[in-house]
Design a protein around this nucleic acid. Structure first.
Lengths: 229, 229
DNA sequence: CAGTTTAGTGTATGTGAGACACTAAGGCAA
DNA sequence: TTGCCTTAGTGTCTCACATACACTAAACTG
């Protein structure tokens, strides 16, 4: 059934930059396009916004349809509206970024996308459309954000060691951090809760496991405390 | 001439939050709506995105059409896409914010808007649509941004005194700053250029005028220097 | 010329960032 | 069981910067 309007309208899509962390690397989730244009190329998961759903609902729906991911941390990034960003027609895309940890969230091959896979940020294929620019914007945002909000807990498992946490910051900021200063800083923030558990199955001294204390964090945000690393 | 699509499409608009600074206050530019819905109410300047213009072009065009403002500092803010934000139909709006100084930029009553006027931020009328939420988001962004980039020069006249600059920061951050510390800080940044001119026509000792040294600023941004106040 | 108003200036203290190196603990292999 | 390997975990010092704080200088006014 066709829909008619008095003036021409750009099409509206959402695209998602999904960051994931494993033991070795910060990764991004891409799908292989099953249809033209850019058939066979890798691209960010995304698709058209339905007229009866909000932008965030559209982003979550596309993410689940194409990758199987649900209940992830998701924030709006930027809206891309250059004229020729899609060769077919004028398409404006509201980009989002998501943070997940690779243990809890298994990615499934998807219905209308050929394949979904994680790529290290320094070993990326050529991306379809202007998705390289979107990804770049997302990386900048992540770097900016992680410096003053403890956003990264979305990337870590529920229980984590301080070394894991430090590795994550180092990956995002792309520079080495001093172990003692890092620990002093993050423990001093008061948002980490020490558990009585330690790492299992490691061939060396096991590290203590911590968890994120969300209640304490919210309390501190209200007080305007900042969380620079 | 009607335009027909296979699936229904949300309409796409831009809205602009224009901040201006005069001697007394930080103000925002609003227009009085000449047509329904919300006829007679005050609203942010904005309108529909044409299919052959980018989002930024749309924002600049609407701003000029409705307020006469041109060549202003403009950055994308956030995209608002709730289902019922416009009573007529589904409209997604890409919001922008602009910074101007009230001496250089005269505002004209406009063609398709009844009237344009500046309002102090603490004396606002009820706004149409979800524009109060958009304005709120813009204020938060401005506060966050001014703390680490010298964004405010867009709000000041070309030549300004340090006291004027301090007043601006105080208005945006909504707290008092120490005069000596403020001067130490901003002069130490090295982006202010002292001129040999002083204020004219004041009934007290005249203050020295400064100008923003954009070249020095760009040089320092490259070096990753930060500009916290 | 006395009064009023704003411009302009320096120091002392405390806090936090960053640099830096050794001991502790646990598994592993000979 | 002992020595080795690997990662965990810890404290101090220095320097820079944030903050608190008050008086003199200059220009105009009546």
């Amino acid at each position: 059934m066709p829909y008619t309007y008095e003036h021409p309208r750009p099409a509206l899509t959402v695209d998602c930059v999904v960051f994931g962390l494993d033991d070795t690397d910060l990764k991004v989730l891409l799908i292989q396009r099953g249809i033209a244009p850019f058939k066979g190329s890798w691209a960010l998961p995304g698709g058209f916004v339905h007229v009866d759903e909000t932008l965030e609902e559209a982003a979550r729906r596309e993410l689940e349809e194409e990758t199987g991911l649900r209940n992830v941390f998701l924030e709006q990034l930027y809206t891309f509206g250059e004229l020729k960003r899609d060769p077919r027609e004028r398409i404006v895309s509201v980009a989002w970024y998501a943070l997940v940890n690779l243990r809890d969230h298994k990615v499934q091959a998807a219905t209308d996308a050929g394949e979904a896979a994680w790529f290290s940020l320094d070993d990326l294929p050529t991306l379809a459309f202007d998705h390289a620019a979107i990804l770049d914007t997302a990386q900048q945002r992540l770097r900016g954000k992680v410096r003053y909000v403890p956003i990264g807990f979305e990337l870590l498992p529920r229980l984590f060691t301080l070394t894991q946490m430090q590795r994550m910051y180092e990956k995002i900021l792309d520079r080495a951090l001093d172990k003692r200063n890092f620990r002093k800083k993050v423990l001093g923030m008061g948002v980490l809760e020490e558990t009585d558990q330690v790492q299992q199955d490691v061939a060396h001294r096991a590290a203590r496991l911590y968890r994120f204390n969300e209640a304490a964090y919210k309390r501190m945000v209200k007080q305007g405390i900042n969380f620079e690393i």
